[in-house]
Nucleic acid binder design. Structure first.
Lengths: 120, 120
DNA sequence: GAGATGTGTCAGGAATCTTTGACAGGTACC
DNA sequence: GGTACCTGTCAAAGATTCCTGACACATCTC
């Protein structure tokens, strides 16, 4: 029988996904990677964007689990990091949002919080 | 026969929805309104948030079509704006994102752009 | 009129995100 | 050695978002 796990993402997870996808550039990046996987430098040229910037956006997408990057060594020995989209699937409905909202940890509020700070 | 229109949101629309939902407070607001519709001041007290701030968040959610607000006059003549969640439904998959990305207008990049500026 | 409750808006500062240029390290080729 | 690719990171500037404390207006009650 087909496995159809009910989509019930955690608040933090959904938050990362939505904020990652809610950006024009990152949407276009996903679209570009849909056509063909690519490595950072080439992708940067393709969509006309600085590499440091693309690198950051890719990191954000990867952290959300929307794309995956693998460091491969080409035949000439050069190390290239290829990215491709991950087969994600999320349903956005009031119920899903409400359920997710109930499991939001304070950690997700601020982007990054040094654990040291919390022990005030 | 049941109507099942294929979800193919435009880039700008999806962008507004995702950025609106990709925020802890706005998620909680939707969750709170799921239980019961409410008016601004009461909701502000319920979730412990300043009214001006709540007002802004509600505006953002309404602009994305996720909640609807109706100005009603109570029996005592007071005007109260009741908000309730709209029955939205979005599917998030690589394909949907790719398709939406193709229809992103420059207008969606910046939050608001005075039409006057565009005529450069 | 004074007080309580509703609505909405505005200016200003705090906190984040976005963007760029410069730097460091690696391998291959002329 | 010098050039051309690749990778990654950092600091500093720019642009948005988020948040708060006033302010103005309206209605009902005391």
């Amino acid at each position: 029988m087909p496995e159809v796990p009910p989509p019930a993402p955690t608040g933090d997870e959904l938050l990362k996904v939505l904020s990652a996808l809610g950006n024009p550039h990152r949407m276009r990046i996903v679209a570009a990677l849909m056509e063909s996987r690519n490595y950072v430098s080439a992708l940067a040229r393709e969509i006309g964007m600085g590499r440091p910037l693309l690198h950051m956006h890719l990191q954000r997408l990867e952290a959300a689990g929307l794309v995956v990057g693998t460091l491969e060594l080409a035949q000439d020995g050069k190390a290239m990091k290829y990215f491709e989209v991950a087969p994600f699937f999320y349903e956005l409905t009031p119920h899903v949002i409400a359920r997710a909202a109930a499991t939001i940890t304070e950690t997700a509020d601020r982007t990054d919080r040094t654990p040291k700070e919390e022990a005030k």
